[in-house]
Each structure stands twice: as structure tokens, then as C-alpha cells.
């Protein structure tokens, strides 16, 4: 996707190289931002924020530590979380009750959801749950890292993730009851 030569040229502030890198990575970065920030009006700002950090941090990229894609993914998630953290109420605790039936079928059903349906599910999810769910499950951040990033305790992160999964279990079925229960 992105060659080392291109990265080196970007470090040297070559405008053409920066453009090439942006065009190569922008769709991927945008996909990540879209998951974190449902409001389209904020996405442009988040995109600029993410790329400004990517360009500024290119010197620190170590090819031996992982793929470039994963590296920019972490930077993007990091920037999104930083932008969101002031607006998230991490003490939010919704009343959720789940039935054993739904719990058993949740993961099986998740596999059947399309990308659009998953994105719709994430949009509806409370902001705090979503951010921590994405950071933990999709970006593989540890609770300690999440805690440092969002200035919360690892235990809060853990409990928010637990609640997020519970929320998914509860809210996943209304989208397609017919698939699971037929004519229920």
C-alpha cells in the first residue's frame, strides 16, 4: 500500500508524496473515523486532525513494529478518542436486561449482519460504549491504554466495555427479528 520510499519522501516534506500518501490512506482513515464519529460535520475535522498527526509522526514509524496500516489506524483511533473524550459521559449506565435466549444467539447473529447494519448498530450505541468498544475490540487497545487515552481508570474502561457488549446483546435483535425468530 505505502512504500518506505514514499514515507521517507513525506518525512522530507515532499508535497507530492504527502498527497500520494493521503490518497492511498484516506479511505481507510475515513472508515475508522466514521465508526467513531457518527456526526458527519465533525468527520472532516477529525480527518484533518488524524492526517496532521500522521504526517507529523512519520519519523517515529518503525517498520519492524508492524504494518503501516495498523500504525495509522492506531493514530486515527487515538485522535478520535481524544476529540470525543470531553463529550463522553463514562458514568452512563443504562438499564439493560437480556434474556438467555438472546445472549446465546448474539454472536451467531453478529456474523450475519452486513457492514451497513453493523454501522447502524454502532451509530445507535451510546457514545462512551461505542468508543471503548471500538478501541478495545477493533483496535485491540488494552484497558490500561484506553484509560490513559481517555483519562479514565482501566476499571471504568472494563465496565464500559462490559456494558457495551450487554447493550449490543440487547439491541441487536430488533433489527431483524424475523431472522432469528421467524414469525414471532
Amino acid at each position: 500500500m505505502v512504500s518506505l520510499a514514499l514515507i521517507n519522501r513525506c518525512i522530507a516534506r515532499d508535497k507530492l508524496a504527502q498527497r500520494q500518501l493521503y490518497e492511498a490512506c484516506a479511505p481507510y482513515v475515513y472508515t475508522i473515523i466514521k465508526n467513531y464519529i457518527p456526526d458527519e460535520s465533525y468527520r472532516k475535522d477529525a480527518m484533518q486532525e488524524a492526517f496532521s498527526h500522521i504526517f507529523a509522526s512519520l519519523e517515529n514509524y518503525d517498520i519492524n513494529k508492524g504494518q503501516f496500516k495498523n500504525w495509522i489506524s492506531r493514530i486515527t483511533a487515538n485522535r478520535c478518542a481524544t476529540l470525543l473524550k470531553r463529550t463522553i459521559n463514562f458514568n452512563l449506565r443504562l438499564e439493560e436486561t437480556i434474556t438467555p435466549d438472546t445472549a446465546e444467539n448474539t454472536f451467531a447473529y453478529l456474523d450475519q449482519l452486513s457492514k451497513v447494519e453493523i454501522e447502524q448498530l454502532l451509530v445507535n450505541m451510546p457514545k462512551g460504549y461505542r468508543t471503548i468498544f471500538l478501541l478495545s475490540v477493533i483496535e485491540d487497545y488494552s484497558h490500561k491504554e484506553i484509560g490513559e487515552l481517555l483519562t479514565i481508570t482501566p476499571e471504568t474502561s472494563r465496565s464500559q466495555l462490559f456494558r457495551a457488549i450487554k447493550w449490543i446483546k440487547k439491541n441487536i435483535f430488533p433489527h431483524s427479528k424475523a431472522i432469528i425468530y421467524g414469525t414471532l
Binding site: 479511505p27 472508515t31 449482519l113 457492514k115 471500538l134 477493533i138
Partner: peptide, 9 residues
């Protein structure tokens, strides 16, 4: 889920 959310838009 991870695979699907990483699909580029």
C-alpha cells in the same frame, strides 16, 4: 465484526 468495520469506504 472487526473485518467488516475495516472494509474501506
Amino acid at each position: 465484526l472487526k473485518g467488516k468495520l475495516r472494509e474501506e469506504s
